[in-house]
């Protein structure tokens, strides 16, 4: 029915060539085509932020982007955050979330992590209001955000 469009994307350092339907969402492409189910879909509207991934280093909502728009771009998902090798070594943000109990049910967690990667790159020493503003595009229903704020401070090496 729909014409398939060939795309080529690099995801977590691995090159993928696929033919996709033009209307396929990037979130569905990552989850269903590539099996990268760490990217979660919470609202399908770009509100909750759970599906956030990096596109050429910037945080984007994969439920608001079509797979064809990612053609030729470089993506990072939560699965690509920790150093490769599959061991227990974590990205400093993941380690901080673990240490500061920045997660409960964990459904929103990948999205928060992916937003924070570029945020900390651009704001290496954020204040609490800066952190709260940066996180405010994400919804978490379990933690009340306090553990998440603490995790960001820990990752940034700023005093609690």
């Amino acid at each position: 029915m729909d014409q398939q469009v060939p795309i080529g994307v690099t995801v977590n350092g691995v090159r993928h060539e696929r033919a996709v339907e033009p209307r396929l969402l990037l979130s569905d492409f990552l989850r269903h085509e590539l099996g990268l189910t760490g990217t979660h879909v919470g609202c399908e509207h770009g509100v909750c932020g759970a599906c956030t991934v990096l596109l050429d280093g910037d945080a984007v909502r994969s439920c608001l982007i079509l797979a064809v728009q990612a053609d030729g771009h470089e993506l990072v998902t939560v699965e690509g955050l920790a150093p490769p090798g599959g061991g227990d070594e974590l990205h400093p943000l993941q380690a901080a979330f673990r240490e500061a109990h920045g997660l409960q049910c964990g459904f929103c967690t990948p999205g928060f992590l992916m937003t924070l990667v570029p945020f900390l790159r651009e704001h290496p020493h954020p204040s609490e209001p800066e952190i709260r503003e940066a996180l405010s595009g994400h919804l978490c229903r379990c933690t009340g955000y306090q553990g998440i704020v603490a995790a960001v401070r820990l990752a940034a090496g700023s005093a609690p």
């Binding site: 760490g38 699965e79 955050l81 993941q94 673990r98 109990h101 459904f107």
Partner: peptide, 22 residues
Amino acid sequence: MHRREGLAKLTGRERYVDDLPL
């Protein structure tokens, strides 16, 4: 002690119902 399932949740390895291969 750390949250027991925390590592799986932080690395995207945790499988919620919609993530299970079928």
